[in-house]
């Protein structure tokens, strides 16, 4: 994560030139598409397509790696919990019982394992498109894109402020922690037991809150003085008129959702299991 609190990587590819709002729309449509299915073949195709898109956007694998590792660990834990809590869930859905393991009458079936795998791939297939949006959209274009999709400009501006102030607030927090450490309050593992550490972390909340409330006053006064919120709409420095590419991707996004509804209703409406 860079100093500005965003993941943006500057390149000149088709996705970087695409308007932010179109990428956001593609992200939303992709998510809706994935949510409609419970079929490993669809997720496998979408995952591959997603990573090809990331490749086209020239995102180095080095910067994707930590996020990819995170989601894989996340899905592994998720699958383990799923298998422990509902070892027969997959079989209940398919009606087939292929028992792999029988522990004291609790049966783990092959179908459940396959269900966990499908679910994991479902989450992984949502990752590339999110990353595509985050890595190729300039944070200052972010608010403008949301506004173009119909989100009120004030809410869009809040998101801009959040992105802008995440590093500042984090610095403030580290300052407070350092000040407390200088007074001998332990914050690191090994200096005290976990409960004590947690208690110490709670003590930083109050000063952090007070300084943040002051910041709210300062920033909102500055914005009021510049006439923020006087009109119903506003213009954006980063807004460009839509180009041919943008229209093509609008069509692709809408087509994706329509295709999803069509395929779902006609072919793949149930959990697919081999």
């Amino acid at each position: 994560m860079s100093r500005t609190g965003s993941l943006y990587i500057d390149r000149n590819t088709i996705f970087h030139r695409l308007d932010g709002s179109i990428k956001l729309m593609l992200w939303i449509c992709w998510t809706i598409f994935i949510f409609m299915f419970m079929d490993i073949r669809v997720f496998a195709i979408m995952t591959i397509v997603g990573f090809v898109l990331l490749r086209i956007a020239q995102i180095p694998f080095k910067s994707i790696k930590p996020l990819l590792i995170f989601i894989i660990i996340f899905t592994i834990f998720n699958s383990i919990l799923l298998i422990i809590v509902t070892p027969e869930y997959g079989s209940q859905l398919t009606g087939k019982y292929t028992v792999l393991l029988n522990l004291f009458g609790v049966k783990l079936t092959m179908q459940t394992l396959f269900y966990a795998l499908t679910l994991s791939l479902k989450y992984i297939s949502l990752l590339p498109i999110t990353l595509l949006f985050l890595f190729t959209t300039n944070p200052s274009e972010f608010a403008c894109s949301l506004n173009r999709l119909g989100v009120s400009y004030k809410v869009a501006y809040s998101i801009s402020i959040a992105l802008r102030y995440i590093p500042d607030v984090r610095d403030e927090m580290i300052n407070i922690i350092n000040a407390q450490e200088a007074r001998g309050v332990p914050f690191k593992k090994g200096d005290a037991n976990t409960i004590k550490l947690l208690k110490n972390y709670l003590t930083i909340l109050f000063p952090l809150l007070i300084s943040s409330l002051q910041r709210v006053d300062v920033v909102s006064n500055a914005m009021d003085l510049r006439g923020f919120g006087k009109y119903k709409t506003r213009t954006w420095y980063n807004r460009r008129p839509l180009e041919l590419n943008d229209y093509i991707f609008i069509v692709i996004s809408i087509a994706l959702v329509i295709l999803g509804v069509f395929v779902k209703n006609n072919f793949l409406n149930k959990f697919y299991c081999i």
Binding site: K154, V155, Y157, S158, I159, S160, I161, A162, L163, R164, Y165, I166, D168, V169, S212, R215, V216, V219, S220, M223, F228, G229
Partner: peptide
């Protein structure tokens, strides 16, 4: 608006 931004941060 600012409170939302700073709160989210």
């Amino acid at each position: 608006v600012v409170a939302i931004g700073i709160g989210a941060a």
